[in-house]
Simulated scan of single mutants.
Amino acid sequence: MTQAPTPTADTVRRLIRTLLKDDGGGADHAPGPDVRPVADGARTGTWWVGDRHVLRLAPDREASLRQRRELRVRDLVRPHVPVSVPVSVARGEWAPGLSCTLDTRM
């Protein structure tokens, strides 16, 4: 299996700009949002993005499949449960074949 690249704050900022490019917000020269890993460690797949969002990066293809399935299930159950369920603001690939989702922070 191919090893996923280790994300850095700069690569996460570029990814966020790419994911949100259709919202009309921001030029390429803008510094980008404040990003920081959720947990300390060399390989983190979850990043705080500002104070309103969480970026989750799937580390492998199996995790990508689970993440895509989770997003569909969340959309299906949201109207039927009495608790808040995160909303995916944007989704895409952060590396070839590896999915990511930018979710609302709970």
Rank of each mutant, 00 (worst) to 15 (best):
M1I: 10
T2W: 09
A4H: 01
P5A: 00
P5D: 00
T6Q: 09
T6P: 03
T6C: 10
A9R: 13
A9D: 13
A9Q: 15
D10R: 12
T11E: 08
V12F: 07
V12C: 06
V12K: 04
V12T: 07
R13V: 03
R14A: 14
R14F: 00
L15A: 05
L15R: 05
T18Q: 12
T18R: 15
T18M: 05
L19N: 01
K21V: 13
D22M: 03
D23F: 11
D23N: 15
A27P: 04
A27T: 11
A27E: 13
D28S: 11
H29D: 14
A30R: 11
A30W: 12
A30H: 13
G32A: 02
P33S: 15
P33A: 15
D34T: 10
D34K: 12
D34L: 12
V35S: 01
R36L: 11
P37M: 01
V38N: 08
A39P: 07
A39L: 14
G41W: 04
A42S: 11
A42Q: 10
R43H: 13
T44L: 04
G45R: 00
W47D: 03
W47L: 06
V49R: 02
R52N: 12
H53K: 05
V54H: 02
V54D: 01
L55C: 04
R56F: 02
R56Y: 06
L57H: 04
L57Y: 01
A58V: 04
A58P: 01
A58F: 01
A58K: 00
A58R: 00
P59T: 05
P59I: 02
P59K: 09
D60K: 00
D60A: 00
E62H: 06
E62T: 11
E62S: 10
S64E: 11
S64R: 08
R66Y: 05
Q67K: 08
L71W: 09
L71H: 09
V73C: 12
D75K: 15
D75L: 11
D75T: 15
D75E: 15
L76R: 13
R78V: 02
R78L: 05
R78K: 08
R78N: 00
H80I: 11
H80D: 13
P82R: 15
V83F: 15
S84W: 02
P86G: 03
V87S: 11
V87F: 11
V87M: 07
S88F: 04
V89H: 02
A90N: 02
R91E: 14
R91M: 09
G92R: 10
G92T: 08
E93N: 11
W94S: 03
W94A: 05
P96D: 13
G97S: 04
L98R: 10
S99C: 12
S99V: 09
C100T: 01
T101W: 06
T104D: 13
R105W: 02
M106Y: 12
M106H: 10
M106C: 13
